[in-house]
């Protein structure tokens, strides 16, 4: 790592720590009072900490998935949300959760949760490979984005059909979920999620070298000594699992996956994708923690959905990229 990258990484670590502490202290609908220790303890360990951990997982995983998708499609406008992969995952969740209202098969807690996760990951997997197949037919950055938009529309139409037939109670839960929520994971679940995300991000970092060659496209990647198809499949499995996992818990979170990698490339000029991945992970986690604070700080008694804040944060970044009269 060059010196400027090190300084940036240090600053981002600091930002991460500050946003984590602020999030734990202020992002909630009740204030933690130190006179009632057991209540404070409960709020901290059962509500605040799981929520903060979920935010860290979601932010870092989506940013990493976005970076990898951008590299694989060699398109700075790619991302799990923009390409409809999040919608695919969320459709997967909808099928299980809303179909349950008519069949009631989610009685067993563990079985139900696993089924939702599996369905969500299958949804993101399916959309990822549909996009990959369609990308061969177009070689245009903007067209790919429109293809993603169409797939995302198809997924949400199917989802609406399911919602139409669902009962009011599960529908309300599902709609809150589909606007993005960090509060779905229990304390234990958030720890397991954290473990899985840390493990996958570590593996990604260790295998990140071919991503550099990917920037030159398929033919050069092969000529530089990497099996392009094989490696691309591996990376797409990673991004599908990350997106599916996060979407199962938090709903489709907008713009983190596309805006964080763009921001990361603005902040550091290095083209070494290992560095970019590290910066994306730190930045993604911090931004989502901060967004969560904003959700609670406007009116603590009625919390804003996180997607509104991430969209207000991410859309201007993408817009700036589009309007900058520079080649991407």
């Amino acid at each position: 790592m060059v010196k400027s990258s090190k300084i940036l990484f240090l600053i981002l670590t600091l930002l991460f720590v500050i946003s984590l502490c602020t999030n734990l202290c202020f992002a909630g609908d009740s204030t933690i009072s130190f006179s009632d220790f057991s209540a404070a303890n409960f709020i901290f360990y059962e509500i605040r900490l799981p929520k903060a951990i979920t935010a860290i997982c979601a932010g870092s995983a989506l940013a990493a998935a976005g970076l990898i998708l951008q590299i694989i499609f060699r398109n700075p406008l790619a991302g799990p949300y923009a390409l409809g992969i999040s919608s695919g995952a969320s459709l997967g969740v909808a099928i299980v959760v809303l179909a349950n209202t008519s069949f009631g098969f989610l009685g067993n807690y563990f079985f139900g949760k696993s089924l939702i996760l599996l369905s969500s990951i299958s949804g993101s997997f399916l959309v990822t490979f549909i996009i990959l197949a369609l990308n061969k037919k177009t070689n245009n950055n903007i067209v790919l984005l429109l293809v993603g938009l169409m797939i995302s529309q198809i997924c949400s139409a199917l989802q609406s059909i399911l919602e139409y037939f669902a009962n009011p109670n599960s529908l309300k839960n599902f709609i809150t979920y589909s606007m993005g929520a960090l509060t779905n994971a229990s304390a234990n679940e958030s720890f397991v999620l954290f473990g899985i995300i840390i493990l996958s991000l570590t593996l990604l970092l260790l295998f990140s070298k071919p991503l550099n060659a990917f920037l030159l496209g398929e033919k050069y990647t092969n000529n530089l000594g990497f099996n392009y198809n094989h490696k691309r499949f591996m990376f797409l499995v990673f991004t599908s699992v990350l997106t599916g996992l996060i979407t199962a818990y938090c709903g489709p979170i907008a713009f983190i996956g596309i805006a964080i990698p763009i921001l990361s490339r603005w902040l550091q000029s290095s083209s070494n994708q290992t560095n970019q991945l590290l910066i994306c992970v730190m930045l993604g986690a911090s931004v989502l923690l901060l967004a969560d604070i904003v959700c609670y700080s406007i009116n603590p008694s009625s919390v804003l959905p996180i997607n509104l804040i991430t969209t207000l944060f991410g859309a201007p970044i993408v817009l700036t990229l589009l309007l900058k009269n520079k080649q991407w």
């Binding site: 951008q70 590299i71 060699r74 700075p76 920037l215 030159l216 496209g217 033919k219 050069y220 092969n222 000529n223 530089l224 000594g225 990497f226 099996n227 490339r265 083209s271 080649q327 991407w328």
Partner: peptide
């Protein structure tokens, strides 16, 4: 692929930029 990359290098005509 790694063995071949030590034997043969290629320069293509495609233009590459970004990132």
């Amino acid at each position: 692929y790694p063995q071949l990359s030590e034997l043969v290098s290629i320069a293509l005509t495609q233009k590459i930029s970004g990132f």
